[in-house]
Write a protein that binds this DNA or RNA. Structure first.
Length: 581
RNA sequence: GCCGACGUAGCUCAGAGGCAGAGCAAGGGACUCAUAAGCCCUUGGCCGGUGGUUCGAGUCCACCCGUCGGCACCA
């Protein structure tokens, strides 16, 4: 067995920054496909490849929708946010997401870092105060975000237009233009009031951002770069970073007790504050600097990847970099591999196989299916280049025909045969034929190919290549046909079985980033102890003579009736939640 | 309305100047180790439309149609 693909390069510091889920309710499969599963694959691979990975995220706890939902239920805002946070964290754990820290924006350290950012940007002249007109609900005694004002659209006459946009004609609106405006909270007619807020002076950053994007953006996904350049060329506008609320990070200046720093400004700072919190918990309070602090010559300490959905591009490719530039001394994003959306658009409404009109929430999906089956579907059909369509038919097909039939079966047919014909003992190989050599060479080569794709954040292609090795193993077994040669040429059968077993041993390593739970089961079926995730990203030899435990299938098939019965338990309607992240 | 992305086989999706691809579905075949799985062969495409650039265009350009997203107080 050769270790030729073992890398000798020095370990890198890789920051895996994962979008902060908004703690307004459960996340659904679309969120997982877009922003949560990809970084986990990326982080797991980089750990196995020997790099120093820091993967942090947390729940975004502030913002108006959470406040409003809590008011409606008559519970304290903090209580609802924390309950939602616990649910999200639990489903992430069940999905196998390997955060080094998954925290919230309610921690003391987050408040401290956010206020520090505020003061530093203010001191450096990147924040200014200005007075604006805002809608005020006299009954709820609260200022209203634009979308909490409803009324008749001045363009098309639609009666339920929101203050920010008309859902009927799609036009962008100003709430002041609405005919017969009413508060979404109380129904009262909103008043216009003056209010003073702090603004982030984004125009100051435009030239520096353009320079930066035109350099680093070259390896970004084209959609992300075009979108970002579009904003920059259009000209940035100052953006209010405070609100008239009592839910959020307080403004660290006297006289602003009735205002708060608004959620989008504090949420992106979470990447930094969570890294600091992680370091403190490690008992090494400065450890975060290894991923964040620029060197004396301004060089980045490693590479920072921000995994988000496409709706979040402005925050991560423009606003957060501007904030970092303004503060100074911290590494900017290296890549922002934003995914498109998982949609339900193509589902045929007339089909009897249409079960729901919405994407399932993670807790529901995880109650019904193995995490690896979900991860497999979300990755092999990931919306990397464009929106991709979700349907239960497609989920079943990918699971049954690809995950189970190709990969699961390749493993199971081999291990079962070994168990029944040679008592589960890994045989001693004889002389290798060219076919055997080719099988092993391919397994070895797949490590480099998959690694290259993951590093480029082409996870879908990476998983496809991995499954390709399972397909090659099936073909190898058919050609070598040990079930025949075992009767005529036992030594040849032994060598073929040994070769196939080495390939399965490679697959348990190769699938580990994508399918962490089944990779661990396979690791144990191969008679190894400990965690498969602590192995190195190279061929893992399986020694001859080892006795393997009795095999069990890695995955289960979903038959039509079972799937239909399971999925019909899902609530047909979308429960009340806030917006996606 | 403005900006951007996308439109490729029945389905889900790759490909980005040089002979149209994969998986699944469909048709045929040989096999029996395996969760009726796996393997081999075959069928299947006006690459959304029109016009242009080019020796050559899914690929580059213009316009049109369709879908999705953004348009700064949702995050």
């Amino acid at each position: 067995m050769s270790d030729t693909n073992e890398t000798t390069r020095t370990p890198e510091h890789i920051l895996v920054a994962v979008a902060w889920p908004y703690a307004s309710g459960p996340r659904h499969l679309g969120h997982a496909a877009g922003a949560y599963v990809p970084p986990d694959i990326f982080a797991r691979y980089h750990r196995m490849a020997g790099n120093h990975v820091l993967m942090v995220s947390g729940s975004d706890m502030h913002g108006t929708p959470i406040m409003v939902a809590a008011d409606k239920r008559g519970v304290p805002t903090r209580e609802l946010a924390e309950a939602n946070h616990r649910d999200i964290a639990a489903s992430f754990e069940r999905l196998g997401l390997s955060y080094d820290l998954y925290t919230t924006t309610l921690t003391p350290i987050h408040y401290r870092v956010t206020q520090d950012f505020f003061l530093r940007l203010l001191e450096r002249g990147y924040l200014f105060e200005d007075t604006q007109l805002a809608m005020y609900d006299p009954e709820a005694k609260r200022f209203l975000p634009d979308r909490y004002v409803e009324g008749t659209c001045p363009h098309c006459g639609y009666g339920d237009a929101r203050g920010d946009q008309c859902d009927n004609c799609g036009r962008t609106l100003d709430p002041i233009d609405l005919i017969e405006p009413r508060s979404k909270l109380s129904g009262a007619r909103p008043e216009t009031r003056e209010t003073t807020h702090f603004f982030l002076d984004l125009p100051q950053f435009t030239p520096a951002l353009l320079d930066w994007v035109e350099g680093v953006g070259r390896h970004w996904r084209p959609a992300v770069m075009n979108f970002t350049l579009g904003w920059l060329h259009e000209g940035l506008k100052p953006r209010a970073i405070t609100r008239d609320l009592d839910w959020g990070v307080p403004i660290p200046l006297p006289g602003y007790e009735d205002k708060r720093i608004y959620v989008w400004f504090d949420a992106v700072i979470g990447y930094l504050s969570a890294s600091m919190e992680w370091a403190e918990r490690q008992g090494e309070p400065d450890a975060w600097k290894r991923w964040w602090a620029l060197g004396a010559d301004g060089t980045a300490p490693g590479r920072a990847y921000y995994f988000i959905g496409k709706d979040n591009i402005p925050f991560h490719a423009i606003i957060w970099p501007a904030m970092l530039m303004g503060y100074g001394g911290f590494a900017l994003p290296y890549d922002v591999p934003a995914n498109e959306f998982l949609t339900l658009g193509g589902q045929k409404l007339s089909s009897s196989r249409t079960y729901t009109a919405r994407l399932p929430f993670l807790p529901e999906a995880l109650d019904l299916f193995d995490a690896d089956a979900i991860r497999f579907f979300l990755t092999i059909n990931a919306p990397e280049n464009r929106d991709t369509d979700f349907s239960w038919d497609e989920f079943q097909r990918r699971n049954n025909d690809e995950l189970v039939a190709t990969y699961g079966n390749a493993v199971h047919r081999l291990l079962s045969f070994l168990q029944s014909r040679s008592g589960g003992i890994v045989p001693e190989p004889g002389e290798l034929t060219p076919t055997d050599e080719a099988m092993l060479a391919q397994a070895n080569a797949v490590f480099a190919a998959v690694g290259e794709q993951i590093e480029a954040v082409h996870l879908r292609e990476a998983l496809r290549l991995t499954m390709g090795l399972a397909g090659a193993l099936n073909r190898y077994l058919d050609e070598a046909a040990p079930w025949k040669t075992i009767k005529t040429d036992p030594a040849r059968a032994a060598t073929a079985l040994w070769t196939a077993l080495q390939t399965v041993s490679a697959l348990r390593v190769l699938t580990a980033p994508f399918l962490p739970f089944s990779a661990q089961r396979l690791h144990e079926l191969l008679g190894d102890e400990g965690s498969v995730h602590e192995l190195t990203w190279i061929m893992r030899p399986l020694p001859a003579g080892r006795a393997l435990p009795p095999p069990a299938p890695l995955f289960r098939k979903l038959d039509d009736e079972e799937l239909a019965a399971l999925v019909q338990r899902l609530a047909p309607e979308t429960p009340e939640t806030g917006e996606p992240l």
